[in-house]
Write a protein that binds this DNA or RNA. Structure first.
Length: 657
RNA sequence: GCGCCUGUAGCUCAGUUGGAUAGAGCGGCAGACUUCGAAUCUGUAGGUCGGGGGUUCGAAUCCCUCCAGGCGCGCCA
């Protein structure tokens, strides 16, 4: 609602400026007056126009104001200070609309037929997932939810590098260090009594990394193993498939605990077997995006120029800026494969994968993965119009190489629709590292890097388990939730809520120094606080229905809304309605700035406002039935808004807590 | 050396893309439970927005320059 009014204001303003001064201007950026009594939307554009029009801003504002109305949802417009235009909304209309919107939970109208692809998680399938991977998964999953809410068709992909060195290292670990055969491995995986397979690999991977460090002469074995995986032949390849598939399943399970799902697993093995690179290579050669270097240190390599194609570039020959795409031995580098994958995302490769079913979610939704020979009636994957890649900020350089490759190939439009959703990594707080027995290395650093290679990190499932136990203690310490099963279900939701909110409340560029004290907090700006707010609202309705069986929240007459939301006594109520009406705006902002934290903050503000309201009004004791009805209307509106907003963060609300 | 990111209250972080009086959580202090359960709420203390210039009617936000951190820059992935 609020977002629609904003859009209306923008258009009307442009029209007004056009009519008054025959001037085409950009849509004005809208702000908020400093105090709610001054209105809900402010326009500051008259200041910008002052110079151009040679008129004082206040005078311009005076002329514009008359032409802004009538406008749906806006009651009146005023001029303030040296030239601000403030709009006062039609409170009753806004309240009625928000109530309706939140009650019906109607599907958003489709924005476009173009599909948006979101690639996230993409963990190397050679060890258990850790806290850093969770940030990626939760950010990506939330982004996907936001886009769907906005009306985009979304496809979530998870890239599985099942033929890379990380898997190869674990294969070497089992074969060379542990002297295990494929059969041994099968038994180890099937044996439920021992340690989890992904945890075994976690330790083994660290050991292998250490081993290579101590024995540089083993590098040949490493390369040979990698080659075997790429060719898909021999026992090593068989082991790799076993390892990567098993571990991918555990990653999927871990993600599912956090309400994170995927539509498709894209495996590197198929990129190799189906020769995706070959097609990409041809394209790049044909369009001269890459060239064969015949001298210098990169002699024999196919390289891509990274220098900007601007004529006035400095003549400085200080080291040519190129990136090797194909090595002198003819093999393709990591970016090369990534370029091929991204070309496929936009259906620019002229090739497609086969697909097979991999996993079925409890509600019947299916997760597919790529295959050389797929099932005949597989859905159509790929063919995206936009593609987000959720990858940590350290890979910005390589993501930029992919983008430049698109430009060099002449795909400017697709390059613009290729979004690297970059985020900072998760580190460990010094205290946390100390608890894990990890040395701080250098003296006083504010965080310690997570490293799969060194086995340093908090395993995702351990963290979720710890949160669950803490939540269960908390649930049991109150007697609001009865029954073992309910308590467990409640504790699960709280654990997930705490973790997802913790990972989402920081903006992307903020490095999270993980600390149990913060992550396990259930008070203040936390997931459980948000969940609790909704539970409080639900408790009111539960209790109310005891005296009024079958009560359903219903819309209120405009006259009542008008009365209760009026300036003065109604201001606090209106503030709450207004905030609830801004959900769509918050989502829009979260998408356009690629900042899910914006929605997390919005949820918190709404919960805070509601808790304040809750504290000031004893709704069930309200003697005036009409007023009580209004308070229930308000409670319902806010609780539903918060529930939907939390759903976008992937956070569910327990029945009681 | 080059490139990108960051610096806001004791701590951890927001700050609606340049607007009106810089906010929140935690921690500190002082208060509020007769069940719509306090996983809550209220009040209070606390800030030269890293420093210095500049642009502008107006700057935490844009530009320049220092200072201090972080991350990238492989024929690794």
């Amino acid at each position: 609602m609020f977002a629609d009014i904003q859009e209306g204001v923008r258009q009307k303003f442009r029209q007004a400026i056009h009519d008054l001064f025959s001037l085409q201007v950009d849509a004005p950026t809208l702000g908020f007056p400093p105090s709610p009594e001054m209105g809900e939307i402010s326009i500051t554009s008259c200041f910008d126009l002052a110079k151009q029009l040679r008129q004082p801003p206040r005078k311009i504002a005076g002329q514009v104001v008359d032409r802004l109305l009538p406008l749906a949802g806006v009651e009146r417009a005023t001029i303030a200070g040296p030239g601000y235009i403030n709009l006062h909304l039609d409170r009753a209309a806004v309240a009625a609309d928000v109530f309706l919107r939140r009650s019906s939970r109607r599907q958003p109208r489709p924005l476009d037929a173009v599909k948006v692809l979101v690639e996230h998680t993409s963990i190397n399938p050679n060890k258990a997932a850790h806290i850093g991977h969770l940030r990626n998964a939760v950010l990506g999953d939330t982004l996907a939810r936001l886009l769907r809410f906005r009306g985009w068709p979304v496809e979530v992909q998870n890239y599985i590098d099942n033929t890379g060195v990380q898997v190869a290292d674990v294969v070497v670990g089992f074969m060379a260090l542990e002297k295990k055969t494929v059969q041994d491995l099968r038994h180890l995986i099937a044996d439920q009594s021992g340690e989890r397979f992904d945890y075994v690999c976690w330790d083994l991977y660290a050991r292998v990394s250490q081993h290579y460090g101590d024995h540089p002469e083993e590098a040949a074995l490493r390369l040979a193993t990698l080659k075997a995986l790429e060719d898909g032949e021999g026992e090593a390849a068989e082991m790799a498939t076993l390892i990567s598939t098993t571990i991918t399943r555990s990653h999927i399970a871990t993600a599912e605990r956090l309400n994170v799902r995927y539509d498709l697993l894209v495996q590197e093995s198929e990129i190799l077997r189906l020769e995706f690179w070959k097609s990409a290579f041809e394209l790049m050669k044909k369009s001269q995006a890459i060239r064969l270097e015949d001298s210098g240190k990169n002699s024999g390599c196919w390289v891509m120029d990274l220098q900007e194609q601007v004529p006035d570039a400095d003549e400085g020959a200080n080291g040519e800026d190129v990136k090797v795409i194909v090595r002198s031995n003819g093999t393709v580098t990591y970016v090369g494969k990534d370029i091929a994958y991204h070309l496929w995302k936009f259906a620019l490769l002229g090739k497609d994968f086969g697909y097979e079913r991999f996993h079925r979610y409890p509600d019947g939704a299916e997760l597919w993965r790529t295959a050389v020979h797929g099932e005949p009636n597989a859905p159509a994957f790929g063919h995206g119009g936009h593609a987000y890649a959720v990858i940590d900020t350290r890979q910005s350089y390589l993501q930029d190489v992919v983008r430049r490759a698109f430009l060099a190939l002449g795909y400017a439009e697709q390059a613009a629709n290729l979004r690297h959703f970059a985020y900072e990594v998760v580190g460990l707080s010094p205290r946390c590292a100390k608890d894990l027995g990890v040395g701080l290395g250098e003296e006083d650093r504010s965080y310690v890097e997570v490293s799969g290679r060194k086995g340093v990190g908090i395993k995702a499932d351990d963290l979720i388990d710890t949160l669950f136990v803490r939540a269960l203690e908390e649930v049991r310490s109150r007697d609001t939730v009865s029954g073992e099963e309910e308590q467990v279900a409640c504790a699960r939701q709280i654990a997930v809520g705490a973790l997802r909110y913790f990972l989402l409340k920081y903006t992307r560029r903020t490095l999270i120094a993980f600390d149990f004290k913060d992550a396990l907090a259930f008070e203040g700006e936390t997931g459980p606080y948000l969940q609790y707010s909704v539970v409080r609202a639900r408790n009111i309705f539960r209790k109310f229905r005891e005296a009024h069986p079958g009560y359903i929240s219903a819309a209120l007459p405009e006259a009542d809304l008008h009365q209760y939301l009026a300036a003065g006594h109604g201001q606090p109520f209106w503030d709450l309605v207004l905030l609830a009406s801004q959900l769509e705006m918050a989502v829009e902002q979260a998408i356009s700035t690629e900042e899910p934290a914006a929605l997390a903050k919005y949820c918190f503000r709404l919960a805070q406002a509601f808790n304040n309201f809750y504290h000031h009004h004893r709704i069930l004791q309200e003697p005036d039935p009409a007023r009580q009805n209004f308070l229930l209307f308000l409670t319902h509106t806010v609780a539903e808004t918060l529930t939907q907003a939390l759903d976008l963060l992937g956070i569910q609300v327990p029945d009681r807590m």
